[in-house]
């Protein structure tokens, strides 16, 4: 990249040799952050694996209470949102700002749809008395450890839901950035990293869905 171009100078930090190095450093940092995210969720997956190994009958019974239809719908919603954010980055790389904003907005709408469906699921469970930990009061599952399954369920889907909220915040921020034209084909690192974060949220849900909803 030519340093005489004033467009490229305004975002290149002085401690980087050139734009490529800055981009690669930023992206590696993002990947390492994603690895720490996976290990954080990893703790919950380990809890899940231990409990399922101890109480396979409980996991079978409790999963019947979850709505696999809504879970599958949410999987489709998140996959669609992964596609739209990938298309948003592609558009930005081609300096198609308007299209990029449209795709980012579509991603935001899909993320909100995911949370609305999650809200419907949660309120349905709450109404039945399926609450995490000591607040559990549902009688429909004849297993003494039933509350533990739902504690794991709420922790895993809850932490995932918080990530969806964070992702929505980031995507909203990126829409502002594209609108201000502070990101463009020569500098799209923030949008690229937001995309990486969003895809990880999708990947985690891809594992959560069959593990929690589809136990036969």
């Amino acid at each position: 990249m030519s340093t005489s171009n004033h467009h490229t100078d305004d975002h290149l930090q002085h401690h980087f040799k050139d734009e490529d190095q800055q981009f690669e450093s930023s992206k590696l940092g993002m990947w390492i952050f994603l690895v720490t995210e996976m290990l954080m969720f990893g703790g919950l997956f380990v809890a899940y694996i231990i409990y399922r190994a101890w109480h396979p009958d409980l996991f079978y019974l409790a999963a019947q209470e979850l709505d696999a239809g809504l879970g599958a719908l949410n999987t489709v919603v998140l996959i669609a949102s992964s596609l739209t954010i990938a298309l948003a980055i592609r558009s930005l790389q081609l300096d198609e700002f308007k299209k990029s904003i449209q795709y980012l907005s579509a991603t935001l709408v899909l993320a909100a749809t995911f949370l609305v469906i999650k809200y419907i699921e949660y309120t349905d469970k709450f109404a039945k008395g399926i609450l995490p930990g000591g607040h559990y009061s549902y009688e429909g599952i004849s297993h003494e450890m039933a509350a533990n399954f739902f504690s794991i369920y709420y922790l895993m889907t809850g932490l995932h839901g918080i990530h969806v909220l964070l992702g929505m915040g980031l995507i909203g921020w990126m829409i502002i950035k594209v609108r201000k034209r502070s990101v463009h084909s020569r500098y799209f690192t923030p949008v690229e990293n937001t995309g990486l974060f969003w895809h990880l949220v999708d990947i985690i849900w891809i594992f959560l869905f069959p593990l929690l909803y589809l136990i036969d």
Binding site: K27, L28, W31, I32, L34, V35, M38, L39, G42, G43, F45, V46, I49, I50, A53
Partner: peptide, 20 residues
Amino acid sequence: NRLAFVLSFLFLAIFVVITL
């Protein structure tokens, strides 16, 4: 970057196996 992602699964596997 590819190595970082692949290694995260390796460490996850170590985490799971040792706990189990």
